[in-house]
Design a protein around this nucleic acid. Structure first.
Lengths: 111, 111
DNA sequence: ACTTATGCATAAGAAGATTATGTATTATAT
DNA sequence: ATATAATACATAATCTTCTTATGCATAAGT
């Protein structure tokens, strides 16, 4: 992923949340959406993304549906019910992480 | 470190910032301080901490000073000038990471 | 024609953690 | 008195997650 090591560990959270918001997405679309939202600051590499999607699918957090669009293969992913629950859990974890880090570094800024 | 995988990648930032604030600290003290600040939510393991301190020292971001207190060994670490600069850089990275994640997950909460 | 964009995938290696283990002294609880 | 917890360091084996490199294939732009 990105440049900063801080992103390590947050890819699953990002994927789950994007799928929660957009219903269904395919891998390449996720990379583009992330690039767009972060204005190019975070680029998810394929070597990180695809294994992550496969893992989430294996954990039954995602369902996959194959489609052929303009003679090109797409694998659309969407949250399972289990995946929706996990998403909420991951978001709470993220919030706690951010609050803790904010306190730890005694940050002056807020979001 | 802690329970959440999100902390992966943030240990160096935590160490550097704590040293910036407290002048000098020894390893065990860092683990206790982090536990205290996060009310037990983040526990830095020794297997993560000591290699991290050694690495930061090898990168000349930290200076070390050995002391014997009550017949027990302590290794006090403090920031070098290079370490102070790196600390500011790491804090900016953290801020950017948090802003990006906040946007990505379309979070309703703020800090 | 060549490069970029779209779209998937995997394998080798690095990095940063966990878990387990080791040493040693001091304080506390039973 | 004696076992356990706390203090204080360290490292080795293993795991996870990422980067980097590579591979295949089609479509679009230059």
């Amino acid at each position: 992923m990105g440049n900063s090591k801080l992103y390590r560990g947050s890819l699953h959270t990002i994927i789950l949340k994007l799928l929660e918001e957009h219903g269904k997405m395919y891998g390449y679309e996720i990379t583009q959406k992330v690039k767009e939202i972060t204005k190019g600051e975070l680029n998810i590499t394929e070597g990180a993304l695809y294994p992550a999607l496969h893992k989430l699918e294996a954990e039954e957090l995602l369902d996959v549906e194959i489609a052929k669009v303009e003679n090109r293969l797409r694998k659309y992913y969407k949250l399972t019910e289990k995946g929706s629950i996990e998403t909420e859990s991951k978001l709470k974890e993220l919030e706690e992480y951010i609050r803790n880090m904010h306190t730890l570094v005694n940050a002056k800024w807020s979001i």
